[in-house]
Write a protein that binds this DNA or RNA. Structure first.
Length: 396
DNA sequence: TCTGGGGTCCTAGGACCC
DNA sequence: TCTGGGGTCCTAGGACCC
């Protein structure tokens, strides 16, 4: 008896483009591209012509000359997202936000007051449409992974239930690219060996996958292909870093210009940190060069802060140490991010600080390792996965 | 496909401590 | 004098996601 499908994956369709079409009736039914330099979002009318997210603007316009190209309006998207998440939280308290436009919802235990998961999902879609004016797709399944794949398959403006008894029949014919964690690199390695579907992956032994892809990715894929995904919906996850970055174009900038841009980025990030009441310890400078190679340089401060000056000082020192690279390779992007926010999760939980038997902690870590197939589970990871709440931790 | 901005997570080596 | 294992933290890079 496999249990019931109670996890919803709710995913707004072509989110930015849909907001534009909602706010400007003249755009409805027409191909819309958000973002000129690079496509941030494309309406389904534009996708039908081959336009894709992250595609260069020139190619996108060539594929779809009749498209209306609009500048992004981030504050409108952020407001729409907030409104949608209110609908989510009116549906169930168990909401885990994944990004600005998608979330997992656990509706287990709501059957008596709210109906079956499919009924709840149907109502959720209607409410998002009525209250916020946006189309949304919902996948319903027993696990997060299947719910996510279901919404992907059901897009746009759809609803799909993967019934527990037909999970493998649903999963195995799908292309490997639908597996979470399979991007261009992993997909290439698999396809090189003729592995094209999830079913093909499932026929491989774990050892073969590990030797092909490495410890974590191998175990992870093996588990997903065998429909093993024990992750629960976690409420109240907080981001672990905040950053800002800026592409510079090919023209080349003077050191003074770069310094001014850096100061602007640090100011942007620290404002956001203070608004969110977060402080961090690790400052990372992110650089990208003419040939698209990248580099990062980081520095961890003794104490966390959200003040502009110490973070800017650290960023400047990192930039100075990167000067040879910058001069020889041509800088095309500079970014800054502040991580280790609130100790990267260590301090986010209220934990009893005494009397934790070490073997209990180790047993919990082992269990998480087993369930996540991860060889490098740390206490931080344990907390991030939200699995360790019942395990008291000792301070070091 | 010639590339934006915001993130997450894993790997691996080195420093350091006991 | 030469040598261990276990563990944490930091740094850098890479893959991936939306």
């Amino acid at each position: 008896m496999p249990g019931e499908a109670t996890i919803l994956h709710a995913d707004l369709d072509a989110f930015y483009a849909s907001v534009e079409q909602r706010d400007d009736p003249a755009l409805r039914g027409r191909p819309v591209i958000v973002g000129g330099g690079v496509v941030l979002a494309a309406s389904y009318e534009a996708k039908a012509r081959g336009v894709r997210t992250a595609m260069g603007g020139r190619l996108a316009r060539a594929l779809c000359p009749q498209a209306v190209v609009v500048e992004p309006r981030m504050s409108a998207y952020s407001a729409a997202s907030k409104a949608v998440f209110e609908v989510f939280r009116d549906t169930t308290p168990l909401v885990e936000g994944i990004s600005i436009d998608e979330a997992f919802l656990d509706v287990g235990g709501l059957r008596r007051i709210a109906g079956s998961p499919v009924q709840i999902a149907t109502r959720l879609r209607r409410e998002v449409r009525d209250r916020v004016g946006l189309p949304i797709t919902v996948g319903v399944a027993r696990t997060k992974f299947l719910a996510k794949v279901a919404s992907r398959v059901a897009k746009p403006d759809g609803l799909l239930l993967v019934a527990p008894e037909r999970e493998l029949a649903f999963l195995h014919p799908l292309p490997v690219e639908l597996l979470w964690g399979v991007g261009p690199v992993t997909s290439g390695k698999l396809r090189e060996r003729g592995i094209r579907t999830v079913g093909h992956v499932a026929r491989l032994g774990e050892a073969a996958l590990v030797s092909m892809l490495g410890q974590f990715a191998g175990r992870h894929l093996h588990a997903l292909a065998h429909n093993k995904d024990p992750r629960r919906v976690v409420v109240g996850r907080r981001r672990g870093s905040m950053g800002a970055q800026r592409a510079l174009g090919r023209s080349g900038r003077s050191p003074a210009e770069i310094d001014a841009i850096l100061a602007g980025l640090v100011d942007r990030v620290t404002r956001r940190m203070r608004a969110a009441d977060r402080a961090g310890r690790t400052v990372t400078l992110r650089l990208r060069f003419d040939d698209f190679s990248r580099a990062t340089r980081s520095h961890t401060m003794p104490r966390e802060t959200s003040q502009t000056q110490p973070i800017l000082d650290a960023a400047r020192r990192l930039l100075v140490t990167s000067r040879p690279m910058v001069e020889s390779r041509g800088l095309t992007l500079v970014g800054i991010s502040v991580g280790n926010l609130d100790g990267d999760g260590y301090l986010q939980l209220e934990l009893p600080l005494s009397g934790c038997p070490r073997d209990r902690l180790d047993a919990a870590l082992d269990e998480v390792r087993e369930r996540y197939g991860s060889a490098s589970v740390t206490r931080a990871a344990l907390l991030r996965h939200g699995e360790g709440l019942a395990v008291p931790l000792l301070p070091d």
